[in-house]
Each structure stands twice: as structure tokens, then as C-alpha cells.
Nucleic acid binder design. Structure first.
Length: 558
DNA sequence: CTAGCGGTTGCACAC
DNA sequence: CCTGTGCTACCGCTA
């Protein structure tokens, strides 16, 4: 017997490869495609979503609406909390089935548990589908013995053992089950896609990238059309300073919102790979899709993944917040043009190259400022159009050497790194017009330019552009020393064999060499209980103390 | 249990 | 110009 169904869009803002859509159409008299504008994502004061990503979402909804209309349906954009909106809709529309795509982010998991029990109270069947990721990440974890692999190598092997991911779902019928037009609360003027002004944003969006499935598929085709480029892709070889034509696909925002299916992307990559000799993960284009899968898998099965505290895979480091430095970083006025240009691109475009993100993330945390990675993560969360919960947190832990990556002495130079790719400083001149006439010789280090040169370039350092907030040579050495202390003081133990395991302190932590007590080490003192091998460090201790002192917020400004 | 391997993406300086 | 080394001794995984 045909019933009324709700198709609840959250991510997965697409028609293609959408198993929830297919199920919602199945045996449906009326099908109601719904998106709910959830106030959770708009908490005033501390934006979770800046105007660029929010508008990207609104454009994606517009596009989804027109694609549904082409098929005789339309999108109902509802306002309110899902746990209020949905039960009312169940009753108003006499709904018997609710279909949606699984979302494993912590907020979504909790929300959906509530919705499920409300649905059950209303005698509504709930059908859920995994189509945001390539695999069911819980299955990957199970196959790996109950805990997620923590290296990309191990993850790639695991995925290979699983075999190819499910093939993309078939396209939906050309004619979708219609809404009942006299259903309460579905008037077009009450359920249309709002504008960014209506959402309360003051400043207009400034990103170049347009949201939506149509745009996603266009960009996807464009990227895939050059098979040689696809087959030869090596992420670390791409240029972070390219902005006229970005060196990578810029498909990430479309994957984040599900405007593009990762499974479609993956399947098409395999087709190209069959024809051509190609690069391999982790650097290949397929590798990039696997990185996303990796962070979804680890993040979805690690408690408190987006925090340092209570996160069993995250190294506990004595980061030190510094309001002044943090604000300078966020607002692009550190005095390092390469860093400030990247932070400007972040705010204006909502997207920058992966390696550019590395530069600024390293600078904020283990490289120069020693500020908690969570602070940086929150800034990215607000401004990035492709912000993706697990990917963002995972990469911030990576860059701050808190998890996954531990060679903390590999510090990016805020001067040399960009110069390698863009010796002329075109990227800096583009995003920091105040420096556009600075001679190439000084474009990465304007504070070294003689005053006369600064005058001629109409950019006086200290007036028109800030002086550097730290001496990188000093700050980076201090950071390396201090993070080394934190490393020796203890390491995280992933004691839990299960997802829910949060207690980690019970297992003894084995150490290879002198287990320096945190307080003593932090004071920079060599201790008597240290192994003889540590003796040679006595000399280093003094220097270390000095370096540690330079990190104190009161004394480290230049 | 443990040693050895290898890791998407650093840099400056010495030789 | 190249390769090696210090920074400081990393760590999950595999055999």
C-alpha cells in the first residue's frame, strides 16, 4: 500500500547517487523532500558558519530545489529544530516513512537519535542509508579489530581488503512522487530558500565558488576530462600559491555538502586508472578521497576527536593561548606576508590550497605561536566553505603534531616555504594589495626593506603593514624545545578496544628512555634520575630554559 | 614482545 | 651543487 514519505536532506544535497531518495520514492503516494534550517548552526556570537559557507549551502538548496522541480517535486525548506519540525510534519502530512542519509558527526548522531525515537512514537518507519562516505566506517573499524587504523598506510591496506566501495546508486525516476499541495505548512512562500540577509548576516559572501549539484558535476567533469592530469596527480607536487587556476580540483566543498558523491568520484577515478598508468595513495587523486575516508573513520570512532582533552589519540601538549597573537593570526596581520595572504584568502574565498593551510596551521601551533590547535580549528570552521568536521579536526591534530604526525621539528618557514613556489610574490600581491609595489627582494620580508624602499612602495612597515609579531628563528626553536618536553612527559595510550572507551589512564605507559617528569622538564632542569645518556643534555637545559622563557606571552613580542 | 621500517607535503647550514 | 645533519631523538604497524 502506498504511503506518504519524508526525504530529509542534511548533507547529500544531490539527486545522483542518492539511495535515500530512491527509497523515499519507492511505493510513495506523496513524497516530501525536506531541508531544515537548524538554528544550531547559527548561534550568534560564536559563528559556527560564516557567510561564505552558509551562502554556499543556500545556493546548494536552490539548485536542489530546481532539480527536484524538473522532476515534478520541490524542496521544502523548513525553519526550526528538527525535533520540533519533523513530529509536526509526521502528523500534518500523515507520514509513515522517514528516509535520510547517515551523518556520523557527533551533533548529527545525537540529533538523529532523538528524531528516531520521536518517529517511533509516531509510528513512522526510519530508513537510513550510508552514501556520504565510500564505506560504512563502522564496518571498516570492525574489520580492523575494533579500532581504527591510525596511519594512512594501514588504512589503505584495510580498504583494499574490503574491496571496491558500493557502486553509485542509480538515478531517480524522471517523475518523482508529488507533494500534496494542500498539505499544511508547505506554501511556497513559507518553504522557499532564504537569502543570506534573511539568515542575519551583515556582510555579503565573497567566495568565487558557487554551491550546488549542477556546479559540482560541472567542476567534476572538468577535472576528470584531462585523464593524463588525473592519472599523474600527486598532491605534494601541487602549487599552494596558484590562484588564477588552483592547482587542485576544489571539489572539497561539494564533497562536504554531498553535492558531489564521493562514491561517484571514486568510481570514475577507477575507470581512468584502468586505462592509464597512475599514481597511488596517499598522493594520488584517489588518495585524496581516501584521506577524507580516513578522517571520517578515525574521527567517527574516537571519543572527543575534535578536542585535546579526553581524546585518546591526541597528545596532551601545554599549548599557551595568547589573545594578541591569536587575533593577529586570525585577522591576517602577523607581519609575515605569506601567512597573512593565506589568512586573507581564507576569509575572502573560504578556500585555500592544502599546503597553504599547513603553513598557517603550523605557524599558529607548533611552529611559531604555540597556541592550541582547537583555536585554529574553530577559525577554519567559521571561514572555510569546505569545512568538514572530522577532516578539519584530523588535519589540525596532524599539523600541530598532536596525532598522526610526530616529527615536530619539521617546521614550515613563513618566509621560505611560499618563496619556493612563488618567488615573485604574485600570491601575496593579490591578497595583500598594500604590498603590491614592494620589490620582489622584500616581498616575503618587508621589514628588511630600507625605509626609502618602503616609502617608494607606499608601504611603511609598522604603519601600513605590521611588523612581524615573532622572530621565526627564535620562536620555532622555542616551540620545538617545548613540544619536545611535552612529548617526553607522556604520550597518549589508545587503551580502549571499543568505540565507547574513554578511560585511558589505567594502562601503564611504556617509555623507552628517561621519563622526565613534566614539571621538572617544563622548568628546563636536567634531573638526577635521568639516564646517563641524558647527561649530555645538561648544556642544552640552560638554552632550553631560555627558549622556554621566550615563549612566555609577556616577553616574546619582538 | 621487540626491532626495524617508513611516513602525502621542513629548513638552514656545512661540506 | 649535492648530500648529510641538527633540530631532537617520533611512533603505529608489521614481521
Amino acid at each position: 500500500m502506498a504511503t506518504n514519505t519524508i526525504l530529509w536532506f542534511r548533507k547529500g544535497l544531490r539527486i545522483h547517487d542518492n539511495p535515500a531518495l530512491l527509497d523515499a520514492c519507492n511505493n510513495a503516494r506523496h513524497m516530501y523532500p525536506v531541508f531544515i534550517i537548524d538554528p544550531h548552526f547559527l548561534k550568534s556570537g560564536s559563528y559556527r558558519v560564516g557567510v561564505n559557507r552558509y551562502n554556499f549551502l543556500l545556493e546548494s538548496l536552490q539548485d536542489l530545489d530546481s532539480r527536484l522541480r524538473e522532476r515534478g517535486s520541490r524542496l521544502l525548506v523548513m525553519r526550526g529544530k528538527p525535533e520540533d519540525v519533523l513530529p509536526k510534519a509526521f502528523k500534518d502530512w500523515d507520514v509513515k516513512r522517514l528516509c535520510y542519509e547517515v551523518d556520523t558527526e557527533p551533533y548529527a548522531m545525537a540529533r538523529d537519535e532523538v528524531v528516531k525515537s520521536l518517529a517511533s512514537e509516531a509510528c513512522v518507519d526510519v530508513n537510513t542509508f550510508i552514501s556520504h562516505t565510500l564505506y560504512d566506517t563502522a564496518e571498516l573499524v570492525k574489520k580492523n579489530g575494533g579500532r581504527p587504523p591510525l596511519t594512512m598506510q594501514a588504512f589503505t591496506k584495510l580498504v583494499d581488503k574490503m574491496g571496491d566501495p558500493p557502486y553509485p546508486a542509480t538515478d531517480p525516476p524522471a517523475k518523482l512522487p508529488p507533494l500534496s499541495e494542500d498539505a499544511p505548512g508547505t506554501r511556497p512562500e513559507d518553504t522557499c530558500v532564504p537569502t543570506w540577509q534573511e539568515m542575519g548576516f551583515k556582510a555579503p559572501p565573497s567566495t568565487l565558488f558557487k554551491g550546488g549539484e549542477t556546479e559540482a558535476l560541472k567542476r567534476f567533469q572538468m577535472s576528470m576530462s584531462d585523464a593524463s592530469w588525473v592519472a599523474a596527480f600527486e598532491k605534494p607536487m601541487t602549487d599552494p600559491s596558484a590562484f588564477e587556476k588552483p592547482a587542485t580540483t576544489v571539489l572539497s566543498p561539494y564533497l562536504k555538502f554531498g553535492c558531489l558523491s564521493a562514491r561517484l568520484f571514486h568510481a570514475e577515478l577507477l575507470k581512468v586508472y584502468k586505462q592509464k598508468k597512475h599514481t597511488e595513495p596517499p598522493v594520488s587523486l584517489r588518495g585524496q578521497v581516501l584521506w577524507r575516508e580516513f578522517f571520517y573513520t578515525v574521527g567517527g570512532h574516537t571519543p572527543n576527536f575534535h578536542k585535546m582533552e579526553g581524546n585518546p589519540i591526541c597528545r596532551q601538549i601545554d599549548w599557551q593561548d595568547n589573545e594578541e597573537h591569536f587575533n593577529a593570526w586570525r585577522e591576517g596581520r602577523t607581519g609575515f606576508p605569506w601567512i597573512d595572504a593565506i589568512m586573507t584568502q581564507l576569509r575572502e574565498w573560504g578556500w585555500m590550497h592544502h599546503l597553504a593551510r599547513h603553513s598557517v596551521a603550523c605557524f599558529l601551533t607548533r611552529g611559531d605561536l604555540y597556541i592550541p590547535w582547537e583555536k585554529g580549528m574553530q577559525v577554519f570552521e567559521e571561514y572555510l566553505i569546505d569545512q568538514d568536521h572530522f577532516v578539519n579536526a584530523g588535519n589540525w591534530m596532524w599539523l600541530s603534531a598532536s596525532a598522526f604526525f610526530s616529527q615536530y621539528f619539521r617546521v614550515y618557514s613563513p618566509v621560505a616555504f611560499g618563496k619556493k613556489y612563488d618567488p615573485e610574490g604574485k600570491y601575496i600581491r593579490k591578497f595583500l594589495p598594500v604590498l603590491k609595489d614592494m620589490p620582489t627582494k622584500y616581498i616575503y620580508e618587508p621589514w628588511l626593506a630600507p625605509l626609502e624602499v618602503q616609502r617608494k612602495a607606499k608601504c611603511i612597515v609598522g604603519q601600513d603593514y605590521p611588523r612581524p609579531i615573532v622572530d621565526h628563528a627564535v620562536a620555532s626553536k622555542a616551540c620545538i624545545a617545548r613540544i619536545g618536553v611535552a612529548y617526553r612527559a607522556g604520550r597518549p595510550s589508545y587503551a580502549g578496544a571499543d568505540d565507547g572507551e574513554t578511560e585511558t589512564a589505567s594502562k601503564p605507559v611504556k617509555r623507552k628512555s628517561g621519563n622526565v617528569k613534566e614539571k621538572k622538564a617544563a622548568a628546563g632542569a636536567a634531573t638526577a634520575e635521568d639516564e646517563p645518556a641524558e647527561a649530555k643534555k645538561a648544556k642544552g637545559a640552560k638554552r632550553q630554559k631560555k627558549i622556554t622563557e621566550t615563549l612566555k606571552p609577556s616577553s616574546d613580542s619582538s
